[in-house]
Design a protein around this nucleic acid. Structure first.
Lengths: 399, 399
DNA sequence: CCCCTTAACTCAAAATGATGGAATAAAGTA
DNA sequence: TACTTTATTCCATCATTTTGAGTTAAGGGG
């Protein structure tokens, strides 16, 4: 329930413990370590770490990996994160379909599920979710929680006309509670691009990074921004509507009322439209992925022309994102074939006037995401880990 | 020391108390209230609030405002924030000058100071600071701390060529410690636009807002972004380099290597260049403010033409910021006369395709800042309050 | 091979600070 | 005046972390 935080609450001993537990678990999720090392890194006493690790080990979330002599002194008992000790559910809700993944805590997919939706009211969709979850539950001894992602934007904004993809009845502040009773699990909700970004930082290309931008190709073009490990949300949960920034002043009209929106040039819909106009794809867009893969394999000129145009607009957009967000890197992912994303990246000509253009970079400025078609659903699953493992600001209360 | 946080640390009882103290003080800074009300709002017990308020009252930071009967029951003793109980120092360091303000905790300016700088090495500048601070100290019984702002970007980035304004020797991670020993006060450092944004949210146009964008006219064009009350920093502290996003593809060349950077069209330097080219301002730009005010008063056509161009570019930029950050509003402030900022705002034609274009807004999408020429120095002072009053994520450790 | 040093770890007591329940104070209401 | 409501205080209790004194298990020097 990330939206509209209104008031910062106080702490007490119990919340302190929960925080410390997340700190310790977060550290061990990053690397195996002995308890004394965790204590030094977190600033906690060894005693506290010892207690917390014992508790986590009792629950199976971490496990001893044996002693490892390093120098003098008694060798530490090294503990490591145990990703197979529990499972998590991720649901992606779109206007036409519901996708589910069940993963372990390391993001490894245990099973998937899918249903086409004819109605999109929460009651109906939550029923479908409960059904899929019931099937999945037989495969996992223990499910920690469920994540839920829906496309933005939320509320009545200037983008609504353009958002046939939005789910109007899905009020972010109400859904988690409904879902919790439907699934009998703790539930977290976020928007697709943000959740996908978290997943990429947890399991994928941005593993270990604290500050990065994730460019999400869904129907349009979304953006998830993670700064210091925390997602940027905005006042109404609508941060990251990258698709509707104006890339070409006086360019192609968009349903939103702007002319030259970026997603008219860089998106799955844009490439589909380009190919349909040239007779390379049926008008309903059926089989897009297969066609794209085939065209890429034979180095098709029409597709290559689209990539050139898209890469030009995308280069400017990424330069802008770099200057505004100063990410460690920008990641491209979502519903486009990996080969096409790779080609787009190869054709980028990033502007020199960027804070990301610096000496001594260890990695490229732009990377491809690793999770492919299931990006959003995996992102949903990652929400659970994010909220279970990542220390937060003092909890926000929602009113 | 906001930059390069590396590790989240654990909590203990003392940190918990410090957090709760900030929560309580933060609440009372927003509105007067009885202790029971604070307890309800923060989720703390009345006893805890009572203890913390007593401590804060002992220090003078809050003071009882008398009883206020409201309904039945014993009327609460209402406590209020006491802005005159202490003072704070704010320093703005630029390559050519050092500006100081001494304010009370409400942002009211008690005195100002100014020195031209011939050298910019930290040792020299810190000496000048200590001198100014010494003079100011006679006016305030108690100084809580000092804030320090410097222009970005930090490190060796692609914008360095363009940043004659940057201070190369000022390494953000080292300065606060040096300054603390020079001033014998707690010191916080941040970049100008970010600090100015915090000040605007604390004392100015965005008072009470949690999520907003502040467009800062310095030499170039900076941006401070506050999301959920926390500044956006980026991986290297360089988030918000708005001036060098490409506004006009293939437009005017910029020292940074890009063509068509926004600050070539919208900045103090841009309007100066426009006026110099037309013989309305001496080539050294001397007397810019007076000239601008005079030209505005007589509705000068040349200036008006600049405003039109600037407003067009600015409208697109603001639309973009809205879609990326989803702020409650965007604020324009800094080193331009209020009348010019007002005219710019009046001429904006904001794009319709924006998440900020929503029904039921209580305030305009764009506001003018309130603090004028001293914006950055006031921002520096605001840093002290931000760190004293605002609850934070578990403290970051710097390595 | 023994003893010293180093480091990890455990146990029990102490310290910190939040909480909960009972008692008290001060108002409005019947 | 008695009763209800709300704010506040007092005091004992509770949840945690920290501290300090051992204990264990390794390496290194003679």
């Amino acid at each position: 329930m990330p939206f509209r935080p209104t008031q910062i609450t106080g702490n007490n001993a119990e919340k302190t413990k929960a925080h410390n537990r997340r700190v310790v678990l977060g550290y061990l999720r990053g690397r195996d370590a002995g308890r004394a090392e965790v204590a030094r890194a977190t600033g906690l006493s060894t005693q506290t770490v010892s207690n917390l690790v014992a508790e986590l080990a009792r629950e199976g979330l971490v496990a001893p990996q044996g002693r490892r002599a390093q120098a003098r002194g008694q060798p530490p008992v090294v503990y490591g994160f145990n990703p197979t000790s529990a499972a998590i559910l991720g649901f992606e809700v779109r206007p036409d379909a519901l996708t589910m993944v069940l993963t372990d805590l390391g993001g490894k997919i245990l099973t998937t599920g899918h249903t086409w939706l004819t109605q999109t009211d929460p009651a109906h969709v939550l029923g479908q979710m409960a059904m899929l979850a019931g099937q999945a539950a037989t495969l996992a001894p223990r499910i920690l929680g469920a994540g839920l992602v829906i496309p933005g934007p939320f509320g009545a904004t200037g983008l609504n006309a353009a958002s046939a993809t939005a789910l109007p009845d899905w009020v972010p502040s109400e859904i988690p509670a409904l879902a919790e009773s439907a699934l009998a699990l703790p539930v977290w909700l976020d928007k697709d691009a943000t959740a996908a970004a978290l997943a990429e930082g947890m399991f994928g290309a941005a593993k270990g990074a604290q500050t990065y931008a994730f460019l999400y190709f869904g129907a349009g073009l979304g953006l998830g921004i993670i700064d210091q490990g925390q997602p940027l949300r905005g006042a109404f949960g609508n941060a990251g509507e990258l698709g509707h920034i104006v890339s070409h002043p006086n360019g192609l009209p968009c349903d939103c009322g702007n002319n030259g929106c970026l997603e008219q040039y860089v998106s799955r819909l844009a490439v589909q439209r380009h190919l349909i106009a040239r007779g390379l794809l049926p008008a309903d867009g059926h089989g897009t992925d297969a066609v794209l893969t085939a065209l890429l394999a034979r180095d098709d000129a029409a597709l290559s022309a689209w990539v050139d145009t898209a890469a030009e607009a995308l280069s400017r957009a990424i330069g802008m994102l770099e200057n505004l967000f100063d990410p460690q890197y920008t990641i491209l992912g979502g519903a486009l074939p990996d080969a096409l994303l790779d080609l787009l990246i190869a054709r980028l000509a990033l502007p020199p006037g960027s804070v990301a253009h610096q000496t001594g970079r260890d990695r490229p400025r732009v990377l491809r995401g690793t999770s492919g078609r299931l990006t959003a659903a995996l992102g949903a699953a990652a929400l659970v880990i994010h909220h279970t493992v990542t220390p937060r600001i003092a909890a926000y209360r929602i009113e």
